[in-house]
Amino acid sequence: MNRRRIISWAVAFLALVACNEAGRLIAAGLHLPVPGTVIGLLILLAALLVMRRVPTPLREMTVFLLAHLNLFYVPAGVGVMAYLALVRQDLWPIIVALFLSTFLATLAAGLAFHWTAKFVRDDESGT
């Protein structure tokens, strides 16, 4: 890998970090109930829409990060292992919460799709 490519990847990574940090600062500064990472992604999306393209170094960096996404789960796995006794003690409430939240999220997504489909169907028949 040549020096120019390494520098372009570093700049692309810094752009991703800058969007993330800008979103975090906006969310904290305005006391928004939205995570800063979501706002950072919206900032990145707006920038890409304005540019009307994805720069090659940014595309390469994101492909690299997505290819190695499993490494981002290592800290969470270490945290679970560190608190294994606590997890074991509260295993049933954790399992119930996981299944209940999954069921409610699936139900909410289904209802949202149903209402959206009904709205679109009504809108199409009215035109």
Rank of each mutant, 00 (worst) to 15 (best):
M1D: 11
N2V: 05
R3V: 12
R3E: 14
I6V: 15
I6Q: 14
S8H: 07
A10G: 12
F13D: 01
L14Y: 08
A15Y: 00
L16H: 01
C19Q: 00
G23D: 00
L25W: 08
I26E: 03
A28V: 08
G29P: 02
G29S: 01
L32Y: 01
P35G: 07
V38C: 10
A46Q: 06
A46H: 03
A47Q: 01
L48Q: 05
L49Y: 04
M51C: 03
M51H: 11
M51K: 09
R52A: 09
R53A: 12
P55E: 01
P57A: 13
R59H: 08
R59F: 08
M61I: 06
M61P: 00
T62N: 08
T62M: 12
T62K: 04
V63A: 15
V63Y: 07
V63C: 09
L65C: 14
L66S: 10
A67S: 15
A67T: 08
H68G: 13
L69I: 13
Y73A: 13
G79M: 15
V80F: 09
R88I: 06
P93F: 04
V96R: 07
F99G: 03
L100G: 02
S101F: 01
T102H: 04
T102C: 08
T102P: 00
F103P: 01
L104F: 09
A105P: 02
L107Y: 10
L111S: 08
A112C: 05
F113H: 09
H114I: 10
T116L: 15
D122S: 14
D122V: 11
D123P: 00
E124D: 13
E124Y: 15
S125I: 13
